[in-house]
């Protein structure tokens, strides 16, 4: 089966402290070369803490950022240009902050019509039919179409954001923290809506979040990102219940869970690695309880471990 989305050695580095002439002061590797495949109809969860490169990765996948190296293939066809319009028909983005992703001075109808007009060149009648269809799918009333974004609650605005992504008729959606700005009672509504839409339209999701429980609840597979690299990938039900990489275990142990006594699974003196001056070897070794001498010199590669799992560690938990 052709993967819906295939990333090969995709990486992004940013120059820091640009000068008028000569080389920049330093280079930050926001995303290290990474390869991933997402099957059609699958939800791949991506978790990681702030600064791990989640958002940079997401922006590359929709063409908002040009990758430094590597290739993105959608349904087997490579997309080389960083042109959001070329990506837009195949892959769309749902933003974290639903309100600020809507132009405050445009009505919802104008927002919804933009992809239909510019990506699909539909005429007025076809546009109006398509919008009705999508609004019915996301449970929004059509009377909302002539209102402005500030009149909506976060949950409603996020439905509109999802509706806009669907309007482009893309089969892959990048969901970048789609519920972290929402209240818990509304969060569940939106997550369930996403699940229904996926079944109805045969969508493929890349679900990015820092909330392990949410990612686990919605994903088929989960990739754990640390310092710009995938350190572990595997089926959602195993990644957190039986973590292989020490970092995944640290994440799973840190999440507050009802019924588990409070404990800090990590010492207080740990500091995140400096992106401008990355450590040699494994980026996690300074925080790792299982570090070996080898970890200081060699960078562990993502190696298959079991049928569906892969982990980048010389001394995994199991």
């Amino acid at each position: 089966m052709t993967p819906a989305l295939k990333l090969t050695d995709l990486s992004k580095s940013f120059p820091v402290g640009k000068r008028l002439f000569g080389a920049p002061k330093g280079i930050v590797h926001a995303v290290q070369p990474l390869s991933l495949e997402v099957d059609p109809g699958e939800t791949l969860g991506i978790v990681g803490e702030s600064g791990c490169g989640k958002s940079t990765l997401a922006r590359m996948l929709v063409g908002l950022l040009a990758p430094s190296t590597g290739q993105i293939e959608i349904d087997g066809a490579p997309l080389d240009t960083a042109d959001p319009a070329a990506f837009g028909k195949k892959i769309q983005y749902v933003f974290q902050d639903p309100i600020s992703s809507l132009n405050p001075r445009k009505t919802i109808r104008q927002v919804m019509e933009a992809p239909l007009k510019n990506l699909h060149r539909m005429d007025a009648r076809a546009r109006s039919n398509r919008i009705s269809e999508i609004f019915a799918a996301v449970n929004l009333r059509e009377e909302f179409l002539d209102r402005y974004p500030h009149e909506f609650s976060g949950g409603q605005a996020q439905r509109i954001g999802i509706a806009r992504a669907l309007a482009a008729d893309a089969r892959i959606l990048i969901l970048d923290e789609p519920v972290s700005a929402l209240d818990v009672s509304v969060q569940a509504q939106v997550l369930n809506l996403l699940a229904d839409l996926k079944a109805e339209f045969g969508l493929t999701y890349l679900f990015i979040s820092h909330d392990l429980a949410v990612v686990e609840a919605v994903s088929d597979r989960v990739a754990v990102l640390y310092f710009g690299s995938v350190v572990e990938v595997g089926p959602a039900k195993q990644v957190f219940s039986n973590p292989q990489h020490p970092y995944t275990k640290l994440l799973a142990d840190s999440a507050p869970v009802v019924g588990r006594p409070l404990s800090a699974p990590e010492g207080e003196n740990t500091e995140l690695p400096d992106p401008l001056n990355p450590p040699t070897g494994c980026a996690f070794r300074a925080r790792c309880v299982r570090a070996l001498p080898q970890c200081a010199t060699d960078v562990p590669m993502l190696e298959p471990k079991g049928p569906a799992e892969a982990v980048a560690c010389y001394n995994p938990n199991n």
Binding site: Q189, L212, A213
Partner: peptide
């Protein structure tokens, strides 16, 4: 019931209408 708890696996969540 709305809040997913870690360790529950993939599932449908209960939402408050």
């Amino acid at each position: 019931a709305c809040v997913p708890e870690l360790g529950g696996g993939q599932r449908q969540l209960e939402a408050i209408p």
